[in-house]
C-alpha cells in the first residue's frame, strides 16, 4: 500500500513540473507589456532596463523559468502588480476560501448524487426516480452563473433568507453560523453540476454491480437482501471515488463562476479580478496553486482507491 502511494507520488512530480511549464509559457505568450504597466506613464528607457534586469526579464527564457520555479517552490510568488503586495498570502487565503466552498459543495453533490443515483437505479419506474432522472439531466447542463443569480433573486433578495454575497457579514463580526449562512447558496449552486454527473455515474455503477454474477451467488448462499445490498454498495465505492474525485477537482475550477456571482473571496474571484487588472503574478500563482491542489486531490483519491479496492494496489 505504501509502495503504491509512493509510486503515485512519484508520478505527480513530473505532472506538477509540466503544469508549471504550461503556466510559464501561457504567461509568456500573453500580449501586452507587464513592464509598462508596472512603470506607469512616468517610465523612461533607463528605468525600464533597470526593472527588466531586476526582474530577470533580460535573461534567456529557460533561465527565467528555472528562476521563477525555484522561487515558486519555496512559496515566493512575487509581488502583485495591482495591489503592490506579496502574492503568496493573498493566494493562499483565497485558496483556503475556495477549499471551504468546494468542500461544502462536494458534500452536497455527493449526498444528492448518491441518493438520486441509488433511487434511479433501484426504483426505476417510480415517480421519484423519474424526477431524479430529470434532475440529473438538467443539472449537468445548468449554467451556474445564472442559477446563482436566480438564487440571489428569489432566496436572498426576494425572500431575504440568505445573504446575497461575500463570506462573512462585516457588521456581525463573522463566526461559524454567519459563514454557514453565506455558504449555503454558493455551495448549492456549485453542487448542481457535479450532483447531476455523480447521480448518472453512480446509477450506472449500481446497475453494473447489481448485474454482476456475485450478486446472484450471494443470494444463493442465503444472505438477506440487506446483506447482499451491503456487498453491492461496497463494490460501488471504487467508481464513486473516481467520479467524486474528478468532480471535486472540476469544482476547484468550476467555482470561479459561483465565486464571481456571489463575490466569494476565493481563487476564482481573485483570478477573475486579476484578469481585468492584468495582474499576471496573481493569475499565475492562482492557477498554479489550484492545479497543485487538484493534483494533491487526485493523489488522495488514488490512495483511497487503493485502500478500498485491493485490485488496484499493484
Amino acid at each position: 500500500m505504501l509502495g503504491y502511494i509512493g509510486k503515485r507520488l512519484a508520478m505527480a512530480i513530473p505532472i506538477l513540473l509540466g503544469v508549471s511549464l504550461v503556466i510559464f509559457i501561457t504567461i509568456k505568450i500573453i500580449p501586452g507589456d507587464p513592464i509598462a504597466s508596472l512603470l506607469g506613464p512616468t517610465g523612461t528607457p533607463e528605468s525600464r532596463a533597470a526593472l527588466e534586469s531586476r526582474m530577470g526579464l533580460d535573461r534567456p527564457l529557460p533561465v527565467q523559468y528555472v528562476a521563477w520555479l525555484s522561487h515558486t517552490v519555496v512559496g515566493d510568488f512575487g509581488t502583485s502588480i495591482a495591489r503592490r503586495t506579496d502574492v503568496a498570502p493573498m493566494v493562499l487565503d483565497a485558496l483556503g476560501n475556495t477549499l471551504i466552498l468546494t468542500a461544502a459543495a462536494a458534500v452536497l453533490a455527493i449526498v444528492l448524487g448518491v441518493g438520486i443515483g441509488v433511487l434511479t437505479a433501484l426504483r426505476r419506474n417510480s415517480l421519484a426516480a423519474r424526477l431524479g432522472n430529470a434532475f440529473a439531466l438538467f443539472s449537468i447542463s445548468v449554467p451556474q452563473y445564472s442559477v446563482g443569480l436566480l438564487l440571489i433573486i428569489y432566496l436572498a433578495a426576494g425572500a431575504g433568507l440568505f445573504p446575497v454575497s461575500g463570506m462573512y457579514n462585516p457588521s456581525s463580526g463573522g463566526g461559524v453560523v454567519d459563514l454557514f449562512n453565506h455558504l449555503i447558496l454558493p455551495a448549492a449552486t456549485a453542487a448542481l453540476v457535479p450532483a447531476g454527473i455523480i447521480a448518472r455515474m453512480f446509477r450506472s455503477a449500481v446497475l453494473d454491480v447489481m448485474s454482476q454474477d456475485f450478486i446472484e451467488a450471494l443470494h444463493s448462499r442465503g444472505l438477506s437482501r440487506r446483506r447482499v445490498m451491503a456487498h453491492a454498495f461496497h463494490n460501488t465505492v471504487p467508481s464513486l471515488l473516481t467520479v467524486a474525485g474528478l468532480q471535486i477537482g472540476n469544482l476547484l475550477g468550476g467555482v470561479v463562476f459561483v465565486e464571481a456571482v456571489f463575490a466569494w473571496p476565493g481563487i476564482g474571484l481573485l483570478v477573475y479580478q486579476s484578469i481585468t487588472q492584468r495582474d499576471l503574478p496573481v493569475i499565475q500563482a492562482g492557477v498554479l496553486v489550484s492545479a497543485f491542489a487538484f493534483v494533491m486531490l487526485n493523489l488522495l483519491v488514488d490512495a483511497l482507491h487503493g485502500l478500498v479496492d485491493p485490485r488496484v494496489r499493484t
Binding site: I15, L16, G18, V19, L21, V22, I23, T26, I27, I29, I30, P31, G32, G249, N250, L251, L252, G253, G254, V256, F257, I267, G268, V271, Y272, I275, I283, G286, V287, S290, A291, F294, V295, N298
Partner: peptide, 20 residues
C-alpha cells in the same frame, strides 16, 4: 496528463485571459 492536472474551467479562463 499535464493538461488534466488543471481544473478545466480555470485553465480556460487563464488561457482566454492571456490571449485577450
Amino acid at each position: 496528463d499535464v493538461f488534466y492536472a488543471f481544473p478545466a474551467v480555470l485553465l480556460a479562463i487563464a488561457i482566454a485571459a492571456a490571449l485577450g
